[in-house]
């Protein structure tokens, strides 16, 4: 259809009167976009209709202006109050979600740590009992058999080491329970580059304490280690190594300011800079 045919078709009048379907109106808009004649005809028809509408102009009664402006001001204030309220609600929800998430994590991890603690206590009692028996045996033997004595001493030493390890695990487990219960800690999930797994990090921003849960981290070859970095103003700070599969939260070097945390895989030895090409998990904070 030529522009003149379109102008004579009567479709432009129906378009201006809003009497075309959406698809038909779209066709007219496309046609007018590249056609000055059609565009001009539409504008003329719109101006004519506007002139007709303007014949009915009427100044509103006195007093309407004040009412309208007052209404608008009140609505504006209400909208602002609503926006502030929504913002506050959003912050509350976010905080609640963090607490909720911590609570969920606590629900899962707490029993693990409590069980670990109980097992550790039983183990400690058991080792203490065995230690006592070993002492008794040693006294009972009371012979000058040096081999027996040596063997008992070795057993006693091994038991002592095991007791120290159990005590240490117990302390870590109890500390983990404390962290999970403490609402000043925020749980932050560091995420692997492919998004398939998370390494939880607990950060108390006010005192700078940082803990990492390495329970589900993968084992590494003996020459490799996991290294945590706290990144502030683009500068990575070494926060220490993380041991995988530990069933308690591992305390890291603290920081009060960080825009990101990254866990990288490094070769064992002196580590000064992160190998960001070997990122295991990372999180950028808002």
């Amino acid at each position: 259809m030529t522009s003149q045919e379109l102008i004579n078709s009567g479709k432009l009048e129906l378009y201006v009167l809003g009497e075309l379907s959406e698809a038909e109106a779209r066709e007219i808009e496309i046609a007018s976009a590249g056609n000055p004649d059609v565009n001009e005809e539409i504008r003329t028809l719109q101006n004519a209709l506007r002139k007709y509408v303007m014949c009915f102009e009427k100044t509103p009664p006195l007093g309407y202006k004040r009412q309208v402006l007052e209404d608008l001001e009140r609505q504006n204030e209400e909208r602002q109050a609503e926006e502030s309220s929504k913002k506050a609600d959003k912050e509350k929800v976010e905080k609640f979600e963090i607490l909720e998430e911590k609570s969920k994590a606590s629900k899962i991890l707490l029993p693990i740590f409590i069980i670990t603690s109980v097992i550790s206590m039983i183990a400690a009692a058991f080792f203490a009992y065995r230690m006592q028996n070993a002492n008794n045996d040693l006294e009972y033997l009371s012979s000058d058999n040096s081999l027996v004595k040596e063997s008992s001493l070795k057993e006693k030493e091994a038991l002592l080491h095991e007791m120290v390890a159990v005590k240490s695990n117990l302390e870590f487990a109890l500390l983990s329970v404390e962290v999970l219960k403490d609402s000043s800690f925020t749980k932050i999930d560091m995420i692997s580059p492919d998004g398939t797994f998370k390494v939880p990090l607990y950060w108390n921003k006010s005192n700078g304490e940082v803990f990492v849960d390495g329970t589900n981290m993968h084992e590494l070859s003996e020459d490799k280690t996991y290294q945590l970095w706290a990144i502030n103003d683009g500068i990575p700070d070494n926060s220490g190594t993380v041991t995988p599969k530990k069933r308690y939260l591992q305390k890291m070097k603290g920081t009060s300011n960080a825009e990101a945390f990254s866990l990288t895989i490094e070769s064992k030895g002196e580590i000064t800079d992160p190998s960001f090409e070997n990122i295991y998990a990372t999180i950028t904070l808002d």
Binding site: V53, M54, F56, T59, Y64
Partner: peptide, 13 residues
């Protein structure tokens, strides 16, 4: 309001 209220009020009325 000052510039456009007569047109708006006319249509509304």
């Amino acid at each position: 309001y000052d510039h456009y209220s007569p047109a708006v009020f006319g249509i509304v009325l």
